[in-house]
Nucleic acid binder design. Sequence first.
DNA 1: ACAATTTATCGTCGATTTGCGATGAAGTCT
DNA 2: AGACTTCATCGCAAATCGACGATAAATTGT
Lengths: 114, 114
Amino acid sequence: MKSSPVAERACGPALEGPDLRAVEGPEADAELAELAKALGHPARVRILRLLVRKDACICGEIVGELPLAQSTVSQHLKVLKESGLVRGEVDGPRTCYCVEPRAVRRLKALVGSL
Amino acid sequence: MKSSPVAERACGPALEGPDLRAVEGPEADAELAELAKALGHPARVRILRLLVRKDACICGEIVGELPLAQSTVSQHLKVLKESGLVRGEVDGPRTCYCVEPRAVRRLKALVGSL
DNA sequence: ACAATTTATCGTCGATTTGCGATGAAGTCT
DNA sequence: AGACTTCATCGCAAATCGACGATAAATTGT
């Protein structure tokens, strides 16, 4: 059996520790642009919000919340995953998506530096 | 004569007053997506940073800072202007671009709500 | 009036994005 | 094993983006 040993479970252990990267300079600009680009679509903003609120989710549930086809939602999730804002772990037949708090903090820091 | 009456001058009077719009919900999502999309390119992040630092600028100076053609920079400025993050006022033969602090604050509020 | 400067716009090209249905891969259940 | 579920991936079409050179528009200076 593989029933979750913990009741309220997110995807996995969140990466912790302070962020040492600079919030300015060419690299930071590229980083901010990449994160912003990932957020540059209403569906992806919505998805990220859903994940933040629920703290754990599955693609299926997300599809139900959006007026989009399953394949389209999967694509958006892929974009979010590639940006680092979201993490996905395979859990049996489903995939458990969750926010990567570190990346969200990073985004906030970068935007805050404007 | 139209010499600037003030030494350090930005574009014009910044829109002031508190922002009453919600930071969540479908409208906020669309707004965040739009602002994020405008920032979703390294050149535009760079331009915005330049404007924030200088507090007033002209397209020509910006072109000098970027490895892009003048027409391309003009396009990026147009995108930023349409997003509301930047304002441009015609000033003689040039155009004076400057940040719209209200929009930047709004962006920070929206990102902060994630 | 004319030349020079500064910025915006147009047209074009290739690349990327967005959306979808169809299909494939992986796992669960009976 | 076979049916079913869940999600990813593959093509494909339409739209948008990013970059450029060329050109137009507006203003200044001579």
